[in-house]
Design a protein around this nucleic acid. Structure first.
Ligand code: SF4
Ligand code: SF4
Lengths: 161, 161
DNA sequence: CGATATAGGACCGAACCAGTCCTTGATTAC
DNA sequence: GTAATCAAGGACTGGTTCGGTCCTATATCG
């Protein structure tokens, strides 16, 4: 169904929140939870994960809270989502032990692996800073995701829509 | 978790299977199920959906089965997946009635919508024929998915990985 | 008729998601 | 030193979706 978990949403919200303020100050889980209406205990565990993954640095005690541990330009959406939701698996055969039992006969595995890579590359090119920036552009054609496309031979694009 | 359902996998397998053979002959659900080890009743309903969505034409009775209803170049992975799994929703707020209750305050909704669009565009550029073609290329940088990227200002690419 | 097809509804177990609750432990303010 | 404030983390639950099975009805060919 190709959906992101809400935990990932919340994690991104929190990181964006932190990326948009003075890196000197911390924000507590409660601050963020209140600001966006996210259940506190849920957000807490997300932030804990992000801290363990090295995105956040935590400070306990009164006036404690979280602050970014790295430059938001160095945090990609891919890494963040991975850290919260676990590995991204477009199909169940792309995980370590999740071998689909027809991976032998399956004819779409390789094609889907390319799609998978495309999505990863897309997410990998988005940084927290991108997300935090107010105005963004849908820019000129660029490297990024490379979809496989038939040889030079025609078969024009039926993209858009 | 960003996973495709197995039903979608199966649907793509079936379409690929049909795309790679003489368009004159039909293949029954059983044929395909046996060929790839897919449970027959499950595959049946997938094929039914694909038929109702206009990808397949079905013929009942002995020697019946399914055949492609359209040119495989005109069937995109996006449409197929949509037809089987329902609408693709990266986050729960992108569906008609699935309004997330913080869509008001949420700060990542718009950015994620762009990611969503990127994924859609990616899937929309893949046709069944692409999937059926033996050799594919990961071609030159091309139009396709446009990830938003900061203004001209530097912030070089930290793509790859 | 009877074999082979599609068409489609009902059902079920397992997994996963979103969220809650409760306990522990560090740090600061008073 | 004690209380308030914070993070850390385990256990549990209700709801939904997924993957799959089963059973019946209908169409078509030989
Ligand atoms: S092997 Fe084929 S059917 Fe199984 S998960 Fe991978 S792509 Fe899907
Ligand atoms: S509104 Fe925000 S939190 Fe809710 S589903 Fe959309 S992106 Fe996720």
């Amino acid at each position: 169904m190709l959906k992101l978990t809400k935990k990932a949403d919340y994690g991104l919200i929190a990181l964006k929140h932190l990326a948009m303020r003075n890196p000197a100050e911390t924000a507590s889980a409660k601050d963020i939870a209140d600001a966006y209406g996210i259940p506190l205990p849920l957000l807490s565990k997300i932030l804990q994960k992000l801290a363990k993954s090295g995105f956040l640095r935590s400070e306990q005690g009164t006036n404690g809270g979280y602050r970014l541990a790295r430059d938001p330009r160095e945090m990609t959406a891919l890494e963040v989502i991975r850290s919260i939701d676990g590995p991204i698996i477009l199909t169940s055969c792309f995980t370590e032990h999740g071998e689909c039992h027809h991976s032998g006969r399956c004819s779409v595995r390789e094609p889907l692996r390319k799609v998978h890579d495309g999505i990863l590359r897309l997410l990998n090119n988005i940084t927290i800073r991108d997300i935090a920036s107010e105005d963004m552009e849908v820019p000129a054609p660029d490297v990024d995701v490379q979809v496989y496309r038939l040889k030079p031979s025609g078969l024009a694009a039926h993209a858009s829509k």
